[in-house]
Nucleic acid binder design. Structure first.
Length: 376
RNA sequence: GGGGGUGUCGCAUAGUGGCUAUUGCAUCAGACUGUAAAUCUGCCACCGUAAGGUAUCGUUGGUUCGAGUCCAUCCACCCCCA
């Protein structure tokens, strides 16, 4: 696996590059649709590949471990074979579940005791186990097991947690060295920068992470409720320390505006549940602003879903029809909305890449941020 | 014509004579950031941006300190018998 940096924008810190994996090339900056349980919810693979043009999708260690389980995934020959997605896959380690399921977790130096949200059973994750499971799932990029701290987080806790995440990181790399990929292709481990919203902690973490000289590096613990300015400040700071010749992955971000602003700070990879979850809840993102399809105002609007959209759903279906489907809780409504939002996100990062390469990113980004913040 | 039953928010429902009439659905809005999420929250009689104010359990009376609840009356609907 390697990363080619093609160009860095002069007026911003945005970058265009390519990540080469055994399952193909990822052109950056890239948005990665989230497919937690082995599926990007409500979206078929052919839509992801041919219409949305996703280049890489996510899976989740915790969810796939609980169900269907690593034995099934190994018998299938890994997640790519299991779900039919032949392009790259990235798996999250379960570190986010340390945060999102915190009410039923117990964190110790050794690892985290999880209570399953499915049946209440207890499971113990260690850095070693997170690596073993990710070996079984078979993602091209796998993530270090970390603690994603909540916001707000007091300084003492953030510092202690960060140091534990660093010790866990060493154990992750040791387990990587002790084990081999199970399906004949390379797996790259990305370490994660933590440190909450504290500059000195983020600085220390970024240096520690950089020293591992991994294929790529991630920024975690953001977009957990802190003000956007804090998120940008931390991202900017960390990007200034992480190596320029490795891809940078900002985990869990975000809105279309967050994505362009983060790209402008030097981020190469992002993922977020927002386009898919909000789609299922009836909220569409467009280049002109957001549309809540549940709103009465679309009831008699028979114009195309998104005249500027690049997906076939944008032209084939009307706003009134999609509103009807969403209101009626029809499956197709969630499918159309999910395809639209993902196609919009992917088109947004493709355009960003094009603009970075031809030198017009900065002014384009400012115009887009203005437009996309509106409520239609 | 005779007998029996039922009327509570748009619909459906709960409601021993005792604080502010319950809940669900629908409606109308809002939220959602490495997915415990086709979820959650608010509103949901009227006036008001709001704080707040005023009502209300088919109708009109009555009993009672106090009535959605008990009594009478009329109205509407349902069932049975002719």
């Amino acid at each position: 696996m390697h990363f080619d940096l093609h160009k860095t924008d002069i007026r911003t810190k945005a970058r265009a590059g390519s990540i080469h994996t055994d399952h193909g090339i990822i052109e950056t900056p890239i948005f990665m649709p989230v497919g937690t349980a082995g599926t990007v919810k409500a979206v078929h693979q052919h839509e992801l590949r041919d219409d949305i043009k996703a280049q890489i999708i996510l899976g989740n260690t915790y969810h796939l471990y609980l169900r269907p389980g690593t034995d099934v995934l190994e018998k299938a020959g890994g997640l790519h074979k299991f779900n039919g997605w032949e392009r790259p896959i990235l798996t999250d380690s379960g570190g986010y579940q340390v945060y999102s399921l915190s009410s039923s977790n117990k964190i110790t130096e050794e690892g985290v005791k999880f209570q399953s949200h499915l049946d209440g059973s207890y499971h113990f994750f260690t850095p070693e186990k997170a690596i073993d499971i990710q070996r079984s799932i078979g993602g091209d990029i796998i993530m270090a097991f970390d603690e994603c701290t909540p916001y707000p987080c007091d300084y003492a806790y953030a510092k202690r947690s960060m140091h534990m995440t660093h010790r866990w990181l060493n154990r992750c790399f040791e387990q990587m060295n002790r084990t081999e990929p199970k399906y004949g292709y390379e797996q790259a481990l990305f370490p994660i920068v933590q440190g909450s919203t504290y500059k000195d902690l983020r600085t220390e973490a970024a240096h520690t992470i950089a020293e591992h000289n991994a294929f790529g590096n991630a920024i975690g613990g953001l977009s957990v409720g802190e003000p956007a300015e804090d998120m940008y400040e931390m991202t900017d700071l960390v990007c200034s320390i992480l190596p320029t010749d490795k891809p940078r992955y900002l985990m869990g971000v975000g809105t279309p505006i967050n994505i362009l602003e983060s790209i402008a700070l030097g981020v190469d990879m992002l993922d977020c549940v927002m386009p898919t979850r909000n789609a299922r809840h009836g909220l569409l993102f467009t280049s002109e602003g957001t549309m809540n399809m549940k709103n009465e105002k679309w009831a008699n609007d028979f114009s195309p879903l998104d005249p500027n959209g690049t997906s076939y759903v944008d032209k084939v279906y009307s706003k009134a029809y999609v509103r009807h489907l969403i209101k009626a809780k029809e499956y197709l409504g969630m499918q159309i909305a999910s395809i639209h939002n993902l196609a919009f996100y992917l088109e947004l990062v493709r355009e960003a890449r094009k603009r970075i390469l031809d030198g017009t990113f900065a002014e384009w980004k400012d115009v887009m941020v203005q437009k996309m913040g509106r409520r239609l």
